[in-house]
Design a protein around this nucleic acid. Structure first.
Lengths: 237, 237
DNA sequence: TCATTGGGTTAATGAAATGTTAATGTCCGG
DNA sequence: CCGGACATTAACATTTCATTAACCCAATGA
């Protein structure tokens, strides 16, 4: 199991984050001060340190510097208030590490954590098969038939969602709510555009059908992954 | 039948919710503490866990975390009070999960429950038997005698309506009002067309008659009403 | 028997849904 | 301020499918 070190002096925030991250399958060490964080770092060698910048005593940046001196490759992720000085933010950006401004969505935090872990080779990227394609959502990469496409974020999200529900009839409304958060006419057209693009990518895969169910939504079917003996005839003669 | 686990320490609220959800056709396990909830989760593998965050002893988040560790795909729905940490709790919405703030309308809760179950594919699609055919309205699929037909939305709605009233004499007018919202001469002809199509689909089923009652309407009769070829073992998990 | 009426069936039609490509807007880093 | 990347919106093309029309037969009743 992957161990994270979280150094955060706000008790409530710290506990909630800890629980949330644990729910996502990480092991989380929580420290309330920079000093405690340093000790835990030495003892446990966490895969990633998440450091709040504003800390009583040793602040997050100092702790980060100390950690880097001990282990230059140690991945760090800083939590910072939005009001921080621009130069600090710049400094954080240019370094090899990531940072995230409070207040943030835990979802986003988890995304960044996974990204860092993957970049630094501590987490295997999720790889999904679609017929003869290989899709790595975290890298926004779809490869197969001699090509590798770099998908955009939305393309990737849509493909992932379709794939997570293969052979299910997905109502347009559900897709819209899941990916866009709401459902109106123009978003609907947007969905059409993305469906179109995904079809273009998947075109070489003759065993993959992204079918339209008029008035309802879409179904993604793959023959290779779900080999059914036979007997699917079209409805209309 | 779909099983839900509800962990809620408020006895009254718990009972009311349980009854309401049972009225909606769910099987509901009610636990008053996190510990009891954990036991029930292990024993019953519910399709969805509904967890109050504020619980004596093991709180909802901790329980959720424990459940996720056991089964990362387990859908969760949190009940939460509208507190200062609202912005953080907002982040609990991730993937299969959702949250709802107290106080809430039971209808809204049911809506969210159904959404999650549908998204995660745990809501068994309604499957209806017609002679030797199997009809799944949610998928617009009618299969039997070696074929699977993809029905259109209207075809599907009509078939569903007929089936819901098998062996009853359905007046043309009633069908029209139910499916089209009104009743005029041309809609009547439209109905004729759809009846014709449905008869075509059902043709191989000699034990199925969609009879015309001239001047009144139709009756759908099936000789084999409740097909139990090898006992009723639910093919799904 | 024929006349009449309700319904059956098939094909043509047109509106709405969707597909597709291009233009526009927006954000972000330099 | 500019340029690139990308989502969104617009504009136009295409497809699907309910409706409508047309023509048929079957039942009813005088």
């Amino acid at each position: 199991m992957i161990t994270l070190l979280l150094v955060e002096d706000d008790q409530d925030l710290g506990k909630i984050l800890k629980q949330y991250l644990e729910m996502q399958g990480f092991r989380v060490l929580l420290a309330g001060t920079g000093e405690k964080g340093w000790t835990l770092f030495l003892e446990e060698h966490p895969a990633l340190c998440i450091l709040d910048i504003m800390l009583p005593g040793m602040d997050g940046l100092s702790l980060g510097k100390k950690i880097k001196q001990k282990n230059a490759d140690q991945p760090l992720l800083f939590l910072t208030a939005r009001t921080s000085k621009e130069d600090i933010l710049k400094g954080l950006k240019t370094g090899a590490d990531d940072y995230i401004c409070k207040p943030f969505e835990p979802e986003e935090l988890v995304l960044r954590i996974r990204n860092i872990l993957r970049r630094t080779g501590r987490l295997e990227p999720e790889a999904l098969h679609i017929g003869k394609f290989l899709f790595i959502p975290d890298r926004l990469e779809l490869s197969g038939y001699g090509n590798t496409y770099r998908l955009t974020l939305k393309e990737s999200q849509l493909l992932k969602y379709l794939l997570a529900h293969r052979d299910q009839l997905l109502r347009r409304e559900d897709i819209l709510v899941e990916l866009w958060g709401e459902n109106d006419y123009f978003l609907g057209r947007s969905l059409d555009v993305f469906i179109s693009r995904i079809r273009k990518y998947l075109k070489p895969g003759k065993d993959i059908q992204l079918e339209t169910i008029r008035g309802v939504g879409y179904v993604l079917r793959t023959t290779i992954d779900d080999p059914r003996p036979n007997g699917r005839s079209s409805g209309r003669g």
